[in-house]
């Protein structure tokens, strides 16, 4: 093949190489973009409730707890040994397992990594880095109503 003297200008061959290369990149982007975007989950329009009935006063006794559904998340209602009702998000702040009330420890406990919270929702032992989100509790008639603060 003959050497083409360099004139500082881009040769037709080099131009076509770049053009084809860019076309391939553009084609790949056009194919991959919709595929990647397809995996993005559309936002859910379902409204999260601000309060929920967690149960009836008759169903609870001191030193017990119950996990219940609050919108799309689990929440926990604790009837403390002193007979006080407290409610928190039941999602452990460590790695999102669902916590439970341990009457033997009188603490809220996570079975996954052994995180422990006191009855005010404060993380007191194990790996959880933050306290549980607290909710308001009100008794209306027989119903225990839990609402987001």
């Amino acid at each position: 093949m003959m050497d083409v003297p360099s004139t500082g200008k881009m040769s037709r061959r080099t131009f076509l190489d770049y053009f084809l290369g860019l076309s391939v990149v553009a084609w790949l982007a056009a194919v991959l973009y919709p595929i990647i975007d397809y995996f993005r989950v559309p936002p859910q329009t379902e409204a999260a409730p601000s309060s929920v009935v967690a149960g009836s006063v008759k169903d609870f006794k001191p030193n017990s707890g119950k996990v219940f559904r609050f919108g799309n998340e689990p929440a926990i209602l604790v009837d403390t040994p002193d007979g006080k009702l407290e409610a928190f998000s039941a999602v452990c702040t460590h790695l999102q397992c669902t916590v439970q009330y341990r009457p033997d420890m009188q603490r809220i406990w996570c079975a996954c990594h052994g995180g422990v919270y006191d009855l005010n929702g404060r993380n007191i032992s194990g790996p959880p880095p933050r306290p549980l989100t607290g909710y308001k509790v009100a008794v209306k008639g027989d119903d225990i109503v839990v609402s987001k603060s």
Binding site: F68, I76, T98, C112
Partner: peptide, 10 residues
């Protein structure tokens, strides 16, 4: 059961 606590010994 998504709204039950994580089982003991998991």
């Amino acid at each position: 059961e998504p709204f039950a606590p994580a089982p003991i010994g998991i």
